[in-house]
Design a protein around this nucleic acid. Structure first.
Length: 265
DNA sequence: ATGTCGGCCGGAGGCCGA
């Protein structure tokens, strides 16, 4: 089983690169975030030509999450019970069962700044996600929570911790929210960086940040115990951040010794 | 670091969000 997650920053703007990347990487299951793709506009035909079926969740111009699978796509759930909104719930979570693996694609609220109402929203959203996963993890099936968490778990996950003091993405409450997810029994599958010591997954478009490798690790794969035991390797595909017209995030690719159990075709 | 993207409206370029 090859599982991947990628904040594409608009599936429409990224479509040529997404298709090339799918054809070259051949993941079985892909979690996408920031699809920014209205309902009904998702390019299902184009990804379908590569063997993928699609479950997507949109609220229009912002946000948007999706799961692509070529090993089945069953029991799709949009959002989760108790999901907070701003004020209405946004398109930030979708889950499905793909080849025997329960997969969540999440786009955690950014938070903006610690004194902004969006920061409280972010913490409430993460707390509600924890409660929803607590219920779901009573099932023994392997589970992955993948996506853009907008939190760097440790100081090693930001290019200059001194610059981030009292900024969002690194505050103790945000990191405690991630720890609460791990306390459910989820394991942070830390990918291999491929270049440099830090497995960054995001680099701001501005100021040559990618070229200087001034990035952050804010895209995460949290694996339940049965999945974590099966993981053989994981890497950040920083090649996908290069060249013309990239997303500001790179994909994470995880290989696990799970035999896909195709439940529908 | 505040240097760039992408979406929207509307038919250019300003505004919002990240």
């Amino acid at each position: 089983m090859r599982l991947a997650t990628w904040n594409v920053n608009s599936v429409k703007a990224r479509l040529p690169r997404l298709l090339d990347w799918l054809a070259g990487t051949r993941p079985d299951v892909v979690c996408l975030q920031e699809t920014k793709c209205p309902d009904g506009a998702f390019p299902v035909t184009e990804v379908g030509a590569l063997g993928y079926t699609v479950a997507s969740h949109s609220d229009g111009r912002w946000n948007g999450v999706a799961i692509l699978s070529r090993v089945g796509l069953a029991d799709v759930t949009v959002g989760f019970p108790g999901e907070p909104g701003f004020p209405e719930p946004e398109a930030r979570a979708i889950s499905a069962t793909c080849g025997g693996l329960r997969v969540w694609s999440v786009y955690v609220p950014n938070g903006r700044t610690p004194d902004d109402p969006h920061y409280a929203y972010k913490l409430a959203w993460l707390a509600a996600l924890r409660d929803a996963l607590d219920t779901e993890l009573t099932n023994a099936a392997p589970l992955a929570v993948c996506g853009d968490f907008n939190v760097a778990p440790t100081d090693d996950d930001v290019w200059d911790p001194a610059l981030f003091v009292s900024s969002t993405h690194v505050t103790p409450p945000e990191r405690a929210a991630l720890a609460a997810l791990r306390d459910l029994g989820l394991t942070d599958v830390v990918p291999t960086p491929m270049k440099g010591p830090h497995p960054f997954t995001y680099w701001d478009y501005r100021a040559g940040m990618f070229h200087q490798n001034k990035g952050m690790r804010i895209d995460l794969v949290y694996a339940s115990a049965p999945l974590a035991r099966a993981v053989r390797s994981a890497y950040v595909d920083r090649e996908a951040r290069k060249g013309k017209g990239p997303s500001d995030h790179a994909p994470i690719v995880v290989d696990a010794d799970l035999t896909p159990t195709v439940e529908s075709f």
